[in-house]
Design a protein around this nucleic acid. Structure first.
Lengths: 139, 139
DNA sequence: AAATTAACTTGCTTTTTGCAAGTTAATTTA
DNA sequence: TAAATTAACTTGCAAAAAGCAAGTTAATTT
């Protein structure tokens, strides 16, 4: 499978890569939920189908948004991590959270978090970005 | 058709509404390309299928992201416009542009725009947001 | 040695997309 | 003013993608 580019518009190009219902949830799981393995992704609340997960992981890897590594604890596991390109999607996720928080029904935990985020978006984003980037630089 | 909510995570909920390959392109066309009618959307570079366009427009309307109005020039036309909820997606689009501009091959025009955006994101976003919101308040 | 876990793959059904052609009302043209 | 065109869809069908259940293989645990 290859990714078709529908046009050279940046928004369209971005959506060609991550504009489906699952890719950004995998990114979210790694970025914010401390998940890094196949089975951890499978167990998320949204219940991705196993073949779709396999497909998305391989697409995200091909797009250089995630990469595979040896799992530190076991050879049976694969450790999925974000690349820099993947980490740089953080601001997109942040804006989706802020939008959802304002216009969609979400969990009360999300409301609380959104409130803090709204007040200090810049700072929180920068801080998270730094932490995430640091994690990949000292591997 | 109704929208299924896969979980109460804000990112997931946002993607349930606008996380497909077409919805945000329609929003982009209204927001940044001065398009407001069915045939204008159809003519975009990405070539959406006519039945999919009809479906997305009705979903976006049901989600209160766009609304239909009489076209000022003709009764044969329908004027689609963004609601406030739709306009508030601007920051998401902006971040997608910035990410694509840095990590994907896009047009040279997009590169130039992205460069300005990167330098002055806050200001440009606020200015655009103000203009868009003004347009809907004085209808 | 047997059971379990992890990461997939396979086969099949359902849903969504894409494409071409057709419909209806409003508008423009000859 | 009749005929052609435009605008916004709808319909039918084939192809692609998603969802679901079960199966495979290698590593790990019991």
């Amino acid at each position: 499978m290859k990714i078709k580019q529908r046009s050279d518009c940046p928004i369209s190009s971005a959506l060609d890569v991550i504009g489906d219902k699952w890719s950004l949830l995998i990114v979210r799981d790694i970025m914010m939920n401390g998940k890094n393995t196949y089975n951890e992704f499978l167990k998320s609340n949204e219940k991705i189908a196993t073949n779709v997960l396999a497909d998305r992981l391989s697409m995200l890897e091909k797009s250089d948004i995630i990469s595979k590594e040896e799992h530190p604890e076991s050879k049976a596991k694969i450790y999925y991590k974000l690349t820099k390109k993947g980490i740089r999607l953080l601001p997109v996720l942040i804006e989706l959270i802020l939008w959802a928080d304002e216009y969609l029904p979400v969990s009360s935990a999300a409301i609380t978090y959104g409130y803090a985020l709204k007040k200090d978006k810049e700072k929180i984003t920068k801080q998270m970005m730094r932490t995430l980037l640091k994690r990949i630089s000292d591997k």
